[in-house]
Design a protein around this nucleic acid. Structure first.
Lengths: 237, 237
DNA sequence: ACTGCCGTATCTACAATGTAGACTTTACCC
DNA sequence: GGGTAAAGTCTACATTGTAGATACGGCAGT
């Protein structure tokens, strides 16, 4: 009749530390980082924590909420310092920070990108909305009209996320066989239909994401700036 | 040898006409459009087609391949006319086309965005790679160096996808209660932490995605153009 | 020391899912 | 007919998320 855990003393020491939302999410992130989103099942997570899977429901309503929590946790590493008055430099810095985050947790990116699509803005985890608020705040405090701030934010964040998706798509998982493997992938394509793509194989292999992101940001921000200042002139007369 | 397509009047309603990859994918798309990606299960799809779920495996290796097929099917509606020599106009047009596609099939967007993240470039469904090839081709034929064409493509497609994600995130499912509902969503946010966001509620409600996309494209393309022509000058001397 | 209580964790159970493998049906050619 | 290959079906199984009841373990009050 005794339960399978015969090692009472040991269990006692283990069990002394109760779970917490943070520890659960941290472990969940570990699993996702290691094996991808699909590998994060309630049972596996429970096992990794040495607890019954059902105990997890104390810390997240369901699996979807757990995934939201993971996304939130990752985004918490982002910070934007409000003291710097140079908004363009700030946004550029933030872009690179997010890029590095994404590269550090590539398996989380699908969550960052997909979850908001199925959650109305106001219902998102607060941690997810914080960057948005901070950017708006930054822009407004450097003189933008709120409406323009929103405009800038949308273009900026749009481009940023798009770039990340692009870059991660081309991200090679096994950089060892780098070019060869890449070519091998492309080799499968019918030459008649995809001559350009195949010819660009070497260039694809030496993709510098950071550089590309930086240039895009530059174009976008200066473009936005001039667009807005021009528009202001028109309004004044 | 080709299979004899004697699908004339011989086939009676009594006997089920055979499935085809197209019909399966079309029905799959219907399900996704109606109830989202998760609602597309083998069993449901089988039922919708009046067949045993197992029969689907003749037309797709597994569920993931089915999803790829759906993404491919949607993208087939995109076409880029090669005759127009104005690359900027072409890309702008294509951007709007893709936007409309995305709005028509919002539930497919997660697939468009997520699937490539788990498939190396060369292994993607060909229909998915065709736009890439066509854009490269267009750019190269209007005089871009292949390498620059790739650069333009990346910035362009990155921005485009990012914009779509952004816009769909704010897409209101029930446009009836439009503003009120939106505010209600935002109302949940702690005012101390999210003053800017809350204040911007009205502006959020009157988002014009087409306009925003157009402006972004303009900025990006003219920026890219001047960046490249400048760079060419430097190289010449 | 006993009792009630409550937050935490576990146990059991169930319906739904993807898919392997063996089997049956159908259509058509000689 | 008989044979063959494609199309479709049946059965079975492991895995999933999670509802609902139950146990556990420490704390308060008496």
């Amino acid at each position: 009749m005794d339960s399978p855990d015969t090692r009472g003393a040991v269990v006692q020491a283990r069990r002394k530390i109760p779970l917490s939302r943070e520890s659960v999410l941290a472990k969940a992130l570990e699993l996702v980082d290691a094996d991808g989103v699909d590998a994060l099942t309630m049972r596996r997570l429970g096992q990794a924590l040495g607890r019954d899977p059902m105990s997890l429901y104390r810390y997240a309503e369901n699996r979807a909420a757990l995934l939201d929590g993971v996304a939130e946790l990752v985004l918490e590493d982002l910070s934007i310092k409000k003291d710097d008055p140079d908004w363009k430099a700030q946004l550029r810095q933030l872009a690179h920070d997010l890029r590095l985050l994404a590269i550090r947790h590539p398996n989380v990116v699908p969550l960052l990108v997909t979850r908001p699509l199925s959650t109305p803005l106001g219902m998102r985890p607060l941690g997810t909305l914080r960057p948005l608020e901070q950017i708006l705040s930054l822009l407004i405090e450097t003189g933008f009209e709120p409406k323009d701030a929103l405009h800038v934010y949308r273009a900026y964040y749009g481009f940023l996320y798009g770039h990340l998706l692009n870059e991660l798509q081309e991200y090679i998982v096994d950089p060892d066989e780098n070019e060869a493997l890449l070519r091998l992938g492309l080799h499968r394509l019918p030459p008649k239909e995809f001559p350009r793509l195949r010819a660009l194989a070497p260039e694809l292999a030496e993709y510098d994401g950071s550089e590309e992101l930086d240039q895009g940001i530059t174009i976008l921000l200066t473009g936005l700036e001039s667009q807005l200042s021009q528009q202001r002139l028109v309004q004044q007369r």
